[in-house]
Computed example of a mutant assay.
Amino acid sequence: MSFLRNLFATAVLGLGVSIPAAARAPLEPADGRTLLIVGQEKHEIARYWKEVGPAGGYMLYSSLATLSGLDGPIKGSGCSDSGTMDFQDWVQNYPDTVAQVGLYMVSSLTDAATGELDHVIADMAEILRQSGKPVFLRIGYEFDGPWNRYHPDLYKMAWKRIADILHGRQVGEVSIAPVSNVALVWHSGAYDTYMNRPIADWYPGDEYVDWVALSWFQWGSDDNEAAATEAREKVAAFARTHGKPLMIAESAPKQYFEAHDPKAWAGWHQRVLDWISANNVKAYSYINQDWTAMPQWQAACGNGADWGNTRIQKPGSRILETWRKELENPRWLRQGPELYPAIGFTPR
């Protein structure tokens, strides 16, 4: 099916024709349109909306082991404090938008793969369903990152089990109605890979994956930047080969191109925007926050000291007005009555 979709897409794009909605993946906009999603912490998202303007989506994280932040707000403490995650804040306060949820599975991969968490997965599915709004679910995000240490075979087993439950298939003792408002996102860290394995080793199959995604963070050395650039191209090529829409699921320039820097726009933001256009990226998730204010991202917690303040609107910003002007481009899908029809979503 993916081959035929790819062949059809190539043919119609050559004629300047968009892929019809029926041929698109769940929640996929037409070619040349891109969802703008902003994350990743409740209060920072609210500040963006107030001080910069509306985005099209709300980005947050949860854990499969606990479903943290899905049924109410949660804020960690100490080195687990990365701000407040609150799916229900999005449900209640951000109409005409999407959610993008990163599902952490490092502590629960084996249990998810072997069926110990089937009922928890079903509970998660019902929470997402009850939102009544479109959700992108990044199952075990940055699957290939050495920092996660996901074994490819277990990862694929867990993914298929989660997908089958969400799709309404009988899994063990669990059977629920299909959840139709969720798109499943297969997200590469797009840098180094665990055990130096190719990303295809983690791929659960075309029938289980809706979107392909990657991370894009600025690195501190030319060698690291070169490795990330090569990895991004491989992920984009994989998405094209499998006929899947492409998402940048996590991104930030870190301290290297903060908004007060005269080189910030040309040095980082314009590069990303040009790549989005060249690769028909259909969702862009930007992490607009002061990382230095979050204990988890400080050097004392072992996460390095280079995360910085990546707010577009930080004091002294030289890019705020350029950013606002860019978002006037019809490419960008943001909050409003046009968004749901543009991604083929009908609220029920």
Score class of each variant (00 low, 15 high):
Trp202Lys: 08
Glu328Lys: 15
Leu137Met: 14
Val106Asn: 13
Gly16Tyr: 06
Ile162Pro: 01
Arg5Met: 06
His260Ser: 14
Glu233Leu: 14
Ala300Cys: 02
Gly69Ala: 12
Gln88Ile: 07
Gln313Pro: 00
Ala46Asp: 06
Asp96His: 10
Phe143Lys: 05
Ala299Ile: 04
Trp265Ala: 03
Tyr191Met: 06
Gly344Trp: 01
Ile287Lys: 05
Pro245Phe: 12
Tyr194Glu: 03
Ser221Trp: 10
Val212His: 13
Ala125Phe: 08
Gln298Ile: 00
Arg197Ile: 00
Gly243Asn: 02
Val209Ala: 15
Gly316Leu: 09
Tyr208Ala: 13
Asp210Ile: 10
Leu184Thr: 01
Ser175Glu: 07
Met247Trp: 12
Trp216Tyr: 08
Trp211Lys: 09
Asn329Leu: 08
Trp49Arg: 06
Ser62Tyr: 04
Pro245Ala: 11
Val171Phe: 13
Gly69Asp: 09
Ile276Ala: 05
Leu166Val: 01
Asn280Gln: 14
Val185Lys: 07
Gln313Cys: 08
His269Arg: 09
Phe136Glu: 07
Asn181Tyr: 05
Thr292Ala: 10
Pro54Asp: 09
Pro204Trp: 04
Ile319Leu: 13
Val209Asp: 14
Gly69Val: 07
Leu64Gly: 02
Trp186Asp: 07
Tyr61Arg: 07
Ala21Arg: 14
Trp159Phe: 09
Trp49Ser: 01
Glu321Ala: 13
Tyr141Val: 03
Gln40Leu: 00
Trp323Asn: 06
His43Ile: 00
Thr66Arg: 04
Leu36Gly: 09
Arg318Tyr: 03
Leu67Met: 10
Gln88Ser: 10
His242Ser: 03
His119Val: 07
Trp307His: 15
Asp71Ala: 09
Ala22Gly: 05
Leu64Gln: 02
Arg47Phe: 03
Tyr58Arg: 06
Gly316Cys: 11
Leu7Tyr: 14
Tyr203His: 09
Asp164Tyr: 10
Ala228Arg: 14
Glu207Arg: 15
Ser175Asn: 08
Ser285Val: 14
Arg33Phe: 01
Phe345Thr: 00
Gln92Ser: 10
Leu36Asp: 07
Gly267Asp: 02
Asn224His: 09
Gly56Met: 00
Ser131Lys: 11
Arg240Gln: 01
Ser18Gly: 12
Ala266Pro: 02
Gln170Gly: 02
Arg197Phe: 07
Ala259Gly: 10
Ala25Gln: 13
Asp153Asn: 08
Val179Asp: 13
Asn6Cys: 10
Val212Glu: 12
Trp268Tyr: 10
Val91Phe: 09
Pro295Ser: 04
